[in-house]
Each structure stands twice: as C-alpha cells, then as structure tokens.
Nucleic acid binder design. Structure first.
Lengths: 358, 358
DNA sequence: TTGAAAGCGCTAACAC
DNA sequence: GTGTTAGCGCTTTCAA
C-alpha cells in the first residue's frame, strides 16, 4: 500500500516532475528516450497517478452520475449498461445514484455535480420540475434527461440534452392495437408521479381512443401510489419501497378490476408494476388473454416465456443509453449551446397476451 | 456556474478558512454563533465543498467500486441496489464497473483502488485467481468478494472480506429435489469460467447424487462458452456479449438436449443463460415440466408468472448486498485483520416446473 | 525539450 | 475557540 508519486518517478529517472506529468498525459514535448525511461520507471514501480490530485488540478473528474429511481426494470438495466460501456470508451466513469423513488435522495445526488464530484449527470429524475433541477440547468451544469422534458429553457444556451422515447406514440401503439382488436373499455395502470411525461403518455391513449371513436373515461386510468419519502431498509433488509409498491399495485389493480368488470383490456405503463398487476389479475380470477387482454411496457428477455407470452411496447433502451452518454460527454467537453434533442421510436411486439374482444 | 469556495465563505463571515472547514466537517470547536453565521453564509451563497479538494487533502474519496460482469441478472440488481442503499447511509458513493465478462476491463477497473480514486471494491471478478487480484489483496486495499474465494491468504492480516451464498448447498438443494422426484439423469447447464466457485457448485451436485446412490456422469454437465475478450458494442448498438452468450446458450443447450435424450431434468446455474435455455427447450420440442423438469438459479419477480411457474434456488441477494457493503466500510475504516467471512443459505422455492420422473 | 513555481480548494497540526 | 501554515499530488503557465 506504499504510494508511489510522480515525484518519486521523477527522482528515479532524474527528470522533473513536470516532465513526468507530460508523459503521463501525453501532451507537450518529451524526448523519446526520456519518455521511455519514465514509462519504464512507472511500470517498474507500479506507479498509478493519483486521481484525486488530478481532479483537483484539472477541475474535472471524468466521472458522471446516473440518477435513476431503480434498476428493477429491464429497460433501466439495458440503459445503464449501455451508458457505462459508452462512457468507458470515452474515458469516463459512472457513479450509480439510485433513489428508490425518494425525492430527498434524488436532490442530494443531483447536487454532486455542483460539488465538483461529477462532471455531469444523466437522469430521469422525478422532481424534474423542481427548483433544484432548473437551478442546475441554469448554472450550465451538463445534464442529459431521459424521458423527461423541461420547459422555459428553449433557445437559451445551456448544457442540457434530452433523450426520449416517443411516449405519446408508445401509448398510442398499445391503445390502438387493443382498440383495433375491438376492445372499448381499455384500462391503464400507471403511477401517480407528477411527471412532465405523464400527460404525453395519456395523450397517446386519448389520441388512439379518439381516432377509433371511443370516449375517454378518466375512471379507466388507475394510478398506483408510489411512496416517495421513505427509502430506508426495514428490518428484513429489503428495500421497503419495492415491497410497498408491489403491494400497492396488487391492491389498486385488484380493486380496479373488481370495480370495472367491463374493462376487457389493460395497459401497464411501468414495468415495475407488472408483477403486481399479474398477481392481481390472478387473484380476481381473470385469465389472460381470455378474460383480459394485456399490453405491458418494456420488453424483457423472459417476456416470450410468460404465461401467456407477453405483448409489449419495446423501448430502445440500449440505444437511448448510448445516445445519452454520447450527448453528455459532448455537453461536458463543449461550451453551452441550445439544448439537444433525440427522439426514438418505440415498437409494438405482438405475442399472445391479447385477444379480439368477443 | 460560479464556484464558491471556503475562502469566500470565510471572507463573508469574517472568520478564517479553518473555522469554515471545522463547521463543514463538524469537528473541532466552533462557537455556536460563529457556526450559525457560517452556515447561513453557506446557505445564502449556495456553497458546496469541493469534493476533489477534500479527497486530495484527506486521502479518501468515500467512493467504492462495484465490479460485476453484468446487471442482466436479478440477483445482481438486488445486490447492487442493496449495496448502494447501505453505502449511502454510511456516506459512501458507488462507482459502477460492469465488465461484460471482459477480463481486460475488469483489471482496469480493479486498478482504480490503487489510483486513489476508490477507497475499496466489492466484486465478483472472474479473474479472481489472477495475479492482479492477489496483488491488490496483498497491498491491503479493502476488497470484498462476492461468491468468490481466494486461497493463500488465510490468517494473514489483510483488508479482505468474503460474502458468499453456500453454493455447494444451492446445487445440492436443486439436485436433491430432482433426484427425490425420481430423476436419474439430471443435466447441468453452466458457464465455462474457471471460477474458484465452479467446483463447489459441482460439489453440491455430486454430493446429492451420491447421497441418492446415483452416478456422476461428466457428460451431463454442459458448459456454455462465455466470450471474455470482446465487449465493444456492435453496429446494432447492442452489447455484443449479451447476444453472443444468448446464442451460445441456445445452441449448446439444444445440442445437449438432443444428444442426451434420457436427460429428464435440468439445472440452470446462471440466470443469464435462462432465456437461452428456455428457447432451446422450445426449439427441440420438449415441454416443461412434462418432458423435462427445470430448476433455475436466482428467483425473480416474473418467475411465478412464467409458463410454467418456475422452481428456483433463491439467493439472498439483498442481504448479501447489505453485508458486503457493511463489511467493506468496516474494512476501509479499520486496520487490516484476518479476512472476514459471511456465508448465507440459499432456499429452494418450489413452483411448477418439475414433475416426478415417470 | 525541460524545469521552477504557483496554484487547485481543502484538511489538519500546531500555536495562540 | 480560532487563526496560521504547511501540505495532499498533480497540472500548467512561463522561462530558460
């Protein structure tokens, strides 16, 4: 655990510490022979430059944060891996900031950019409308939003980017498909988060209904309460919110299906709620697809092997991850400019969880 | 993006920079009034201490790394979230280091501890037998291994910890359950990694066979080749290895099932291979559980909703994550001592993917 | 092509 | 209780 410093490499090689720095960073002029000797010494002594010192000296950390609510969603896993691989190729590191839907934790993590610990942030933050968020953006810290939007910064030079799946189209695809099968009472299970995206998701639903001449009934939209304030683990050492969300989903969906016996099709907007919905469907004694058609959001490797194989709206998560990482690095390394936007299309993958309405 | 420094807070408040530092860190003596004024100034100016500077001055970063091959395994997701939540409570951050099974990337990430970027590491590194690994351990860098072991360091004071599921018992549970149902030709689908754990996994298999008076046939153990050298994304922007692994699994399993028609039960050791195995089973025209009984490793939320509901050996992933994080923080904050060990028990969750042998 | 020197912004003795 | 001072290990002008 002996720390070798650049000073020792310099002494060993008989050069100045500045020359060592130049060869480490491969900039400035260093004589080939000298460079070779220095590199040999670094190898021999197992020298690795101290990152903390470099960070302080350069004012950069080559580390960015990823603020997500949870990884319990295959789309987030895909995105996270894609982000990390892309960042690695570009010489950046990734700090994981899962919030478990807790807004306080989210805010704390977002601050890390301001504290100089992170060069930037990729996030699908819940409180995207909060003042902290706008402040960050206005202070020109590099931020890329995933499936979020932010009003009031149009045209202003910031270091903000947006990577979005076309959410309205995603919900449209699902709704239109079900309506095309003859379903007239199509339920939606969603979260209660006040997201900037919520209205676009429902927008696609309404758009599809209208196109098919169906009426929008707000009672068909069932929001499941997400606990955003407690995220500490309970005695069981289990993430409390995961369980709470599951229970809340089972209950809300069960009551919904019971209260609305004429609902013949269901769209599940958030993957995290899917197991709860499936359980509730079983509990109320309905069968998919015979008694209820089902479309879920996000594809996942097991979807073809469910009973029945699940029809889903697939999100181009991996591509979104790559784009987000590319975009963030560009924002970090370039001056502020008007916000960048990338919009990707979702895709309906039809399997066997839907049937024509009798 | 104006950077406020402690110096400015000091000037604003009319105290020295040292006093500001004391109130930030809440150590040493600071008069209550002075403290209040400093805190007010910090709040007013939106001051946040620069992390890079603190890291350099203290020689610590309060950041640890998590080196995993992939997040495409629910057990790893559970573990990652648990680790992150525990670390957060203790004031540490988590750097994600996914390797996509690439050994070079793995080694690169492991070095981050030596470069002073990370205070420690939690890992299930593949090359746990490699010299780099032993070197890290011998240099007393805090490392916690998950489901790995390391020989030759017994009794030596190091900063090493081990959190393990009882792998031998896990395989024993699965094998014994299937043998108890009357199966005599029980196949195992595993990876080809030269892991220190592989023999323990197979040990449980052999142990259960022996206890049931069945013979061990090495032909019943099918290893799927894992590509450990390429991890760059391909033109499709898709993690190459994920696809490659999937294809390799489908093919190897398909050939295995065709070559071994008398195999009536299958144990799948790695969750990442499960979709490939399920697909291969379909392709060769076998049906679970009628033509083939199946036990998979790691439980996951969708397991009860597969066709058929899947019998699994569940890993206490969340608890393992908490333990690993607790252990690592202890190793970081305390002097070297003989390695710590935690061994947790797996659990067989019986659903409907197995039937008695006819 | 190289070296000297001044920081980067903070912490931690040590003195008062 | 508080201030002074010397670093932490590197990068980066500026001279030589």
């Amino acid at each position: 655990m002996t720390k070798i410093t650049a000073r020792q490499i310099a002494a060993q090689t008989g050069v100045s510490i500045a020359t060592v720095s130049r060869t480490i960073n491969n900039n400035g002029y260093v004589h080939a022979d000298v460079r070779a000797r220095i590199e040999a010494a670094m190898r021999d002594l197992g020298y690795l430059p101290n990152q903390a010192a470099r960070n302080l000296a350069t004012g950069r950390t080559r580390t960015v944060g990823l603020v997500l609510q949870t990884l319990h969603s295959p789309a987030f896993v895909d995105m996270t891996e894609a982000i990390q691989m892309t960042l690695r190729e570009k010489g950046y590191f990734l700090l994981m900031c899962n919030t478990q839907f807790n807004q306080q934790i989210e805010t704390d993590y977002l601050r890390l950019v301001q504290s100089g610990m992170l060069d930037g942030m990729i996030t699908n933050a819940i409180n995207d409308t909060a003042t902290e968020m706008r402040q960050l953006v206005q202070q020109n810290y590099p931020i890329v939003f995933i499936n979020r939007s932010l009003t009031g910064i149009e045209g202003q030079p910031t270091r903000t980017g947006f990577v979005q799946m076309d959410l309205q189209h995603a919900t449209f695809l699902a709704t239109d498909y079900l309506a095309g099968l003859g379903h007239r009472r199509i339920g939606v299970i969603t979260g209660d988060m006040q997201l900037s995206t919520q209205q676009r998701r429902l927008g696609g639903y309404r758009e599809a209904l209208q196109a098919r001449g169906l009426e929008f009934d707000p009672l068909l939209v069932q929001a499941v309460a997400v606990n955003r304030n407690e995220a500490t683990r309970d005695g069981q050492l289990t993430p409390k919110n995961a369980n709470a969300l599951h229970e809340a989903t089972v209950q809300a969906t069960g009551e919904f299906l019971t209260a609305m016996p004429d609902v013949s099709a269901l769209i599940v907007i958030y993957h995290t709620m899917l197991p709860g919905v499936l359980q509730a469907i079983r509990q109320v004694g309905r069968r998919v697809p015979d008694d209820l058609s089902l479309v879920a959001f996000s594809d996942f490797p097991m979807a073809p092997f469910l009973d029945p194989p699940l029809t889903v709206v697939a999100q181009p998560s991996t591509e979104m991850g790559h784009k987000a990482a590319d975009m963030l690095v560009a924002l970090i390394e370039q001056p502020a400019q008007p916000a960048q936007h990338v919009l990707l299309r979702p895709e309906l993958i039809v399997r066997q969880s839907c049937k024509p309405y009798p």
